[in-house]
């Protein structure tokens, strides 16, 4: 009998933080050695399992940011600290953090795409000696959808930050899509660097093309795909693109590969 790879295990909820009207961050107890950019299958009562990226990690804990959407809202939003959340993971290929070290890092994230890059950003915030400059360009739809406000504020101290809202004019935020502000990142002056782009497919597509225009080589660009998944272990078929399974070979892809993943 092979081991049951689909078996979820209980984890104690340590804290819950409401990010926006719809998004909540759950901090759960876990000693797992998750890597930045990986994800877990979380059991969301009434709904089933869903792939959720690790949005932060620390000593003995992991954070997941879950969006409360759809007509069927999960009972997970009724849970309180001390309750247990069932999950399994970590899954997927992480960001190649070691390759990023001691170079410059450009992170461009849109909306909920901030969640999968947040742990990477926090890591370099905590370890400034391991990175040169960090350029963090984050875009949100409107004021109500700004995630991780405390981190955004904190990051300003050590990173070059550009925060923008698609429509709203709010203090501390630019206006317009992230692509509008890309020109402020001094790509031409960077030598050893990597670029992470995470967000909705259209945003990633256009941002990557624009980066290429600015002379960023394809192999320096990293993206993270979000796909529907039932298993996260290469069986259910939902996340397949070409011969690639996002759960196995992704969700983090180098652009040289990602550019050939057509839906």
């Amino acid at each position: 009998m092979s081991t049951n790879i689909l078996l979820p295990r209980p984890h104690r909820i340590l804290a819950i933080n409401q990010e926006t009207e719809h998004e909540y961050t759950f901090r759960v107890e876990s000693g797992a050695a998750a890597k930045h950019g990986q994800f877990y299958q979380l059991s969301l009562p009434k709904i089933g399992e869903a792939p959720i990226s690790v949005s932060a990690m620390g000593d003995g804990w992991l954070e997941f940011t879950i969006r409360k959407v759809g007509k069927l809202t999960s009972e997970v939003f009724r849970l309180r600290p001390g309750d247990r959340l069932f999950m399994r993971g970590p899954y997927g290929k992480p960001f190649p953090i070691d390759d990023f070290k001691h170079g410059d890092l450009v992170v461009i994230a849109g909306g909920t795409g901030v969640a999968p890059v947040r742990s990477t950003l926090r890591y370099f915030y905590e370890h400034p000696e391991e990175i040169k400059e960090v350029y963090f360009l984050a875009g949100f739809r409107d004021e109500g959808s700004i995630l991780f406000r405390a981190d955004l504020e904190r990051f300003k101290a050590r990173f070059h930050t550009i925060y923008t809202l698609d429509r709203d004019r709010v203090d501390g935020f630019e206006t317009g899509l992230v692509t509008r502000h890309l020109g402020r990142i001094p790509f031409s002056t960077l030598t050893r660097y990597h670029v992470i782009i995470v967000g909705p497919p259209v945003m990633m597509h256009h941002t990557a093309l624009k980066c290429l225009e600015y002379g960023v080589p394809e192999e320096k660009i990293w993206v993270s795909f979000e796909r529907r998944m039932s298993c996260a272990v290469g069986k259910c078929g939902h996340c397949k693109i070409n011969e690639t399974y996002v759960c196995l070979e992704g969700p983090v892809f180098n652009y040289t590969k990602a550019k050939e993943l057509w839906d």
Binding site: M1, S2, T3, N4, I5, L6, C231, V233, G234, K235, G237, Y245, C247, L248
Partner: peptide, 16 residues
């Protein structure tokens, strides 16, 4: 192939 070889783990429900 799909249930037992794709990825690095076997689907035990298929296997059994």
């Amino acid at each position: 192939t799909m249930f037992l070889k794709n990825g690095d783990s076997e689907d035990s429900y298929y296997r059994r």
